[in-house]
């Protein structure tokens, strides 16, 4: 937007911004995120192999576990294999590094630049991450899914309805993860070194999202606690839909709760950004 610097041209009015204009601005960030993936090209060269190794390792761990029991917590081995595989496949789509990006922006002193842009920083970061995720969907998620389907006896989705619900649910997972990462990333503004926190968050999401083990395997008390937290809506719930363990109203309820959590987390991220960015404006970053 080079206009506005030259007095002869009318200034773009920020007050009269229409919804379409806002959408166009964020669509641009999505595009930038998509194009910017060159900076991470090694990830695409190695990604499929990495994910294949992950799933294989968990395949053998679960095989050893199922050696002397046919069903645990209502999962037979075939379901468990599907649970793990689908979990990792969708992870290759929904994950992002917004938290790390913010941390680096802080370290490099570039965060002040985010403050002067006339956009909502949370939506800007999330829009860019979405562009990256869409890129990954084609370059990593789909190829990984194909490879895994060829090698392992992964089950088909329970029904067309379930697959549709699953698809919607995964898209919502992306926004939950993105909002969590944004909120965690804002800590970087206040902390000297955030990397320890990011590692803790990594393990926390891996475990509490149900990526490694279904939530129903946890002791009762944890199951109850997780029910009122957003984490299980990242991986556990979408995969349950895929497996057909939720149906009809269950799917509708799950999707509604996902949307609810996205809204709550957006509000949280916004509040935290305000709280943290005060530090930049007061202390000069």
């Amino acid at each position: 937007m080079g206009a506005g610097t030259y007095p002869l041209q009318p200034r773009p009015s920020l007050v009269g911004t229409s919804l379409a204009r806002v959408a166009r601005v964020y669509a641009e960030f999505v595009r930038v995120g998509f194009v910017n993936t060159l900076a991470y090209r090694l990830r695409y060269y190695t990604g499929i192999v990495t994910y294949f190794i992950y799933v294989s390792v968990y395949y053998f761990i679960w095989k050893a576990i199922y050696a002397d029991s046919a069903s645990i917590q209502g999962f037979d081995f075939g379901q468990m294999l599907t649970y793990i595989s689908v979990g990792w496949i969708i992870r290759s789509f929904y994950f992002n590094n917004i938290d790390q990006d913010i941390a680096y922006a802080v370290m490099e002193g570039k965060l002040a630049m985010d403050l002067i842009k006339p956009v909502n920083p949370q939506f800007m970061y999330i829009a860019q991450a979405l562009g990256e995720s869409l890129f990954r969907l084609g370059m990593l998620t789909v190829p990984t899914a194909v490879v895994l389907l060829l090698v392992y006896p992964i089950r088909k989705p329970a029904s067309a309805l379930h697959f549709t619900g699953f698809f919607a649910s995964v898209l919502l997972s992306f926004f939950i993860v993105a909002a969590i990462n944004f909120a965690v990333g804002t800590f970087a503004i206040r902390l000297q070194s955030i990397l320890g926190l990011l590692r803790a968050k990594y393990f926390l999401l891996e475990l509490f999202s149900g990526l490694l083990i279904p939530i129903s395997f946890f002791p009762r008390i944890f199951v109850d606690i997780f029910a009122v937290l957003p984490f299980e809506y990242i991986s556990y719930v979408p995969v349950l839909i895929y497996l057909g363990k939720l149906s009809g109203w269950g799917i509708a309820r799950a999707l509604t709760l996902q949307v609810f959590w996205i809204l709550v987390l957006f509000a949280l991220g916004d509040a935290m950004w305000r709280w943290s960015s005060r530090k930049i404006t007061i202390q000069g970053g």
Binding site: I61, A64, I65, S69, I72, Q73, L191, Q192, S193, G196, L197, R199, A200, Y202, F203, L204, E206, L207, L212, I213, F217, F218, P219
Partner: peptide, 30 residues
């Protein structure tokens, strides 16, 4: 800041073992 880093690090260590802990609540041996 350092205190938060230590706490985060310990949390990560414990959570890293979470999978096995949960697993052994359902099975006796691996």
């Amino acid at each position: 800041d350092f205190f938060i880093a230590v706490i985060s690090s310990m949390t990560a260590t414990v959570l890293g073992f979470g999978f096995v802990l949960v697993l052994f609540s359902k099975i006796p041996r691996l």
